[in-house]
């Protein structure tokens, strides 16, 4: 290859790299609300491996779940029907990075509002109250989290605060952290641990399709879920809060809750608002 050709190629590569870098930066810093209105498209981060909450349906490659519907409903009310809603699958591990990276505009992914997280991102008002608990195989001798004594193992999700919480409730049990819910549940089914811990709403989804597993014990924490946006995006945050309040007032929020969680035995709308 001639020297000049090589130099051209190298320059092209570097230019592309800089472009990639530049693109990311501008997307995250610009006012998201204005950008959504201009470009008529918004990108939400949602879970893709949690039944009832956010699950990728392999048949049609579409995401379905409570949070998916919530994102669609919010977008429609905030920006109108003609805004395209894009979804990016996230895990507890990757959701913060995706938001900070500017790859997504807002995050609705079973994310608990916590002070440490508030330092890094902004949260909307709470849209769901969950509680952390555990699931075990049917017939297991463990009936509540406190029974996870020394010698037992419990699986948690990397990046989720459920890992720290379970250590407080079951300090002698060994905690295994796995990258996402699908992997975690697969590992549980393979007998890698005696229980899996997460928020009840996520665990409901898992047991709904797997009657061999059941929740054990009462929730031992209260998890307030919030929609997260990057720091400095006050416009979209205010819009989200206003729209959430409106949805709760006119009953469409309750409808959504019942649509996805109505079949769960013992579910009361009041519990999760």
């Amino acid at each position: 290859m001639k020297k000049s050709k090589l130099l051209t190629l190298i320059t092209l590569i570097m230019a592309t790299a800089l472009l990639a870098v530049g693109c990311g930066k501008s997307v995250a810093d610009k006012n998201i609300s204005t950008r959504v209105e201009e470009e008529k498209s918004i990108t939400w981060g949602v879970k893709s491996d949690l039944r009832l909450v956010g699950l990728l349906n392999i048949k049609d490659n579409k995401l379905e779940g409570f949070e998916v519907d919530l994102a669609k409903a919010l977008t429609k009310r905030m920006y109108g029907d003609d805004v395209k809603v894009n979804f990016v699958p996230v895990t507890s591990n990757t959701r913060m990075a995706l938001l900070k990276n500017g790859n997504i505009d807002a995050l609705v992914a079973t994310m608990t509002i916590l002070p440490e997280r508030k330092k890094v991102v902004d949260f909307s008002d709470s849209y769901f109250t969950a509680g952390q608990t555990i699931i075990v195989k049917k017939g297991s001798k463990i009936t509540n989290p406190q029974e996870l004594v020394a010698g037992t193992k419990v699986i948690g999700l990397q990046g989720s605060n459920s890992v720290q919480n379970i250590k407080k409730v079951a300090p002698l049990s060994q905690v295994l952290e796995l990258p996402d819910a699908a992997q975690a549940f697969s590992a549980l089914q393979s007998g890698q641990a005696d229980a899996m811990t997460s928020d009840n709403v996520m665990l409901y989804g898992l047991v709904s399709d797997n009657p061999n597993y059941q929740l054990a014990g009462k929730p031992f924490t209260t998890e307030e879920y919030g929609i997260a946006v990057n720091k400095g995006q006050k416009d979209i945050l205010n819009k989200i809060n206003k729209t959430l309040a409106a949805m709760k007032k006119d009953g469409s929020y309750n409808k959504l809750l019942l649509k996805w969680f109505g079949q769960i035995p013992g579910f009361k709308v009041g519990d999760v608002q």
Binding site: S186, A187, Q189, S190, G191, Q192
Partner: peptide, 12 residues
């Protein structure tokens, strides 16, 4: 990690 413990023997 996933297949062997399910069908053969436990494995950390």
């Amino acid at each position: 990690y996933i297949v062997i413990p399910k069908y053969v023997m436990p494995m950390s």
